[in-house]
């Protein structure tokens, strides 16, 4: 299978955010992470782009993305005080969306920092 090489890839495992990793990708997995430390290498090799799960789960049952988004909006709409929590292992673009959603829902947004 053809190997794609990505130069200067960024590792998000720890706060060092090393941005000099050379990734070798084959199909739906990364087979080599040059320059990465042992933690970073395990991180890159562990994740794949396989379709291992359904798009979404509602009450534990497989569901479509559309239905799950609709249900999530309904839950937030009905809540008096929803909490949006986490924000650690997501991009800053997604973090900004989380803040926007918290503002619209009249809720609370919080991260790992508060622990």
């Amino acid at each position: 299978m053809a190997v794609t090489v990505v130069q200067n890839a960024t590792c998000t495992f720890c706060g060092c955010v090393c941005d000099d990793i050379e990734l070798h990708a084959e199909g739906d997995r990364i087979v080599k992470a040059k320059n990465a430390c042992s933690l970073g290498e395990a991180w890159f090799l562990h994740h794949t782009a396989e379709r291992l799960y359904p798009d979404a789960l509602i009450d534990g049952q497989p569901a479509s993305l559309d239905a799950a988004v609709e249900r999530a909006a309904e839950i937030l709409d009905r809540a008096d005080l929803p909490l949006i929590y986490g924000l650690s292992n997501i991009t800053s673009e997604a973090q900004r969306e989380a803040v926007f959603l918290a503002e619209l829902a009249g809720g609370i947004v919080d991260s790992h920092t508060s622990l």
Binding site: L81, L83, I84, G86, L87, I108
Partner: peptide, 12 residues
Amino acid sequence: DVDAVLVVGADP
């Protein structure tokens, strides 16, 4: 205190 939670980027 909260009556709904959305978790993203964490596994509490």
